[in-house]
């Protein structure tokens, strides 16, 4: 998955030269990324990329702009672009995190995304970069996916990381849902079965 995403960022964005020019500008002048990042979808489109599942053209273009930043500028720009981004920009930042030269310093962005009620941001926060998330936060985020109906396929490395505590939490939610005459999504039931 991560290598696919890198390929997206490198190779598969079709554009008329706008992106290559934008990358050169960002490399030279990191501050220029602010406006270029916001307008990337208007230049590169927003279609799903058939080459790599789960990525759209604007997300890939935005990943390329982030990859064009001088390494020293990455942490600050990532935080700033997320903070002042619209929902698509925030999602693009989250998806690009595992591709960037970052340690665990961008974890606060994951916490922010997980706090929202936007299912797209929640899902994007649980990609490969979520390995930096502490286990308690990660469990709560997975449980929130179950609660909001986000497919668990959005959670990177789910079966490796799921533990008995998560199983207890999902089982409790299942009991509450059953009492209300509602049911857990099938993927959550399957995970529960696997864990118990």
């Amino acid at each position: 998955m991560e290598s696919d995403a890198r390929r997206v960022a490198r190779d598969v964005v079709a554009d008329d030269g706008w992106l290559a020019d934008a990358e050169r500008r960002v490399a030279r002048d990191p501050a220029s990324i602010v406006r270029l990042f916001a307008s990337a979808g208007r230049h590169c489109g927003r279609a799903s990329l058939p080459q790599v599942e789960g990525w759209t053209a604007d997300e890939a273009a935005r990943a390329r702009l982030l990859l064009a930043l001088p390494v020293a500028a990455v942490p600050r720009r990532v935080e700033d672009l997320y903070r002042y981004g619209d929902a698509d920009e925030k999602r693009a930042v989250l998806k690009a995190l595992p591709l960037l030269p970052l340690d665990g310093g961008a974890v606060p962005l994951l916490h922010d995304a997980i706090r929202t009620n936007d299912t797209r941001l929640l899902a994007a926060a649980l990609g490969p970069y979520a390995r930096h998330l502490d286990q308690a936060s990660w469990r709560q985020a997975v449980l929130k996916c179950v609660f909001m109906g986000v497919p668990l396929s959005a959670v990177h490395g789910l079966t490796e990381r799921a533990d008995a505590e998560l199983a207890t939490m999902i089982a409790d939610l299942r009991d509450e849902r059953d009492a209300a005459g509602r049911h857990l999504p099938d993927d959550a039931l399957a995970l529960l079965k696997q864990l118990t």
Partner: peptide
């Protein structure tokens, strides 16, 4: 920048699960 394409089909939620059903 007005985008009125695909007004009914471009649902960003997953399988219709969303705040329509109560959110978190």
């Amino acid at each position: 920048r007005l985008d009125l394409t695909d007004l009914r089909g471009g649902d960003p939620t997953y399988e219709g699960n969303s705040i329509l059903r109560g959110g978190s």
